[in-house]
Amino acid sequence: MSSTPSSSVLEARKALAARLVALRKDARLTGDELSARCGWHPAKTSRIQSGKAQPSEDDLRAWCTACGAQDQADDLIAAARAVETMYTEWRRMERGGLRAAQESVADLYHRTNLFRVYASRVLPGMVQTPEYTEAVLRSIQRARVEVDDVTDAVEARLERQRMLFSGRHRFGLLIEEWVLRAAVCDPETMAAQLGHLLAVASSPFVSIGVIPTGPGRPHLPVEDFYLFDEAEVAVELTSGYLRITQPGEITDYVRTFTDLAAMAVHGAEARQLITAAIATLG
């Protein structure tokens, strides 16, 4: 399973385009007639109707006016804005620094009851120690962010952690075994991080599963993702941050999480793998 910004955004554009086509047909207008009323070239209408072009808010208002459906303009504009916010490049999200990126999801985290996370690169942010978080964010800052506000970004993540572990939220975390051994920080920091992970695993609100590495591990290439209840999925891609809100796509991620959970070990077996990773650090 793999999502790309192009495929997900295109599907959302097509859904919006289908609504616009239906609106035109209900008004008994051809594409050329609608184009004439809107004052633009028919090729623009064709691109919008195929989902290849994203209409501006002015385009949507003109379309609704041409179809005599001005009352639907606000709803269509809201739908178009949702498409625009589906995918954000990291460089755009982080151009003002890393703290803003951390704070941008605070409301979403606050209103989520059940978090389900799949991690294949680094440990989930909600169970990171301050030192591990600093190492991860520092590597990101050096690679792609000009503003150095790593200290503030770490504090923003810690503020979110305090909110999350208030007892009002539940967590299902699936972690690839190799993440327990990934050299994202020095051995001392990693040992402390894994010790913290063991402590978190004892919480009644947290379920931690570790997917063992080995020849018996089924090949299921999946990008890191966060499931917020069944309302939204956040996918961390190499190039940016993808928000998925389409029910059908969310269902795909729920199913994938279930499949990954079946590959994982939990409880004492998961703790043994974490402990073994600590032992390799000396």
Rank of each mutant, 00 (worst) to 15 (best):
S6L: 12
K14F: 07
D74V: 07
A270R: 08
T256C: 08
L281V: 02
T280M: 06
V254G: 08
W90Y: 00
H110V: 11
A79M: 14
L198A: 02
L76A: 02
A66T: 00
M263F: 14
A279F: 03
F171S: 03
R28D: 14
R181I: 01
M86S: 11
S104F: 05
G240L: 01
R92S: 06
T189D: 03
A270N: 07
F165D: 03
E11A: 14
G216D: 15
S7A: 15
E134P: 00
E232N: 05
D59C: 05
F165N: 08
V265Y: 14
E176Q: 08
E131N: 12
G125C: 04
R243W: 07
T258P: 03
V254R: 12
R243A: 08
R168W: 15
Y118G: 13
L227D: 01
V179C: 12
Y87M: 01
E11D: 13
Q102L: 02
R47F: 13
T65L: 14
Y109R: 07
L158Q: 15
I211E: 02
L76G: 00
I140L: 15
W63E: 01
P55V: 01
L108F: 15
E188S: 15
S202F: 03
M126P: 10
S2G: 10
G31M: 10
S166R: 12
A183C: 10
A183G: 09
E94F: 07
R168Y: 15
H196S: 04
P247I: 04
R91E: 10
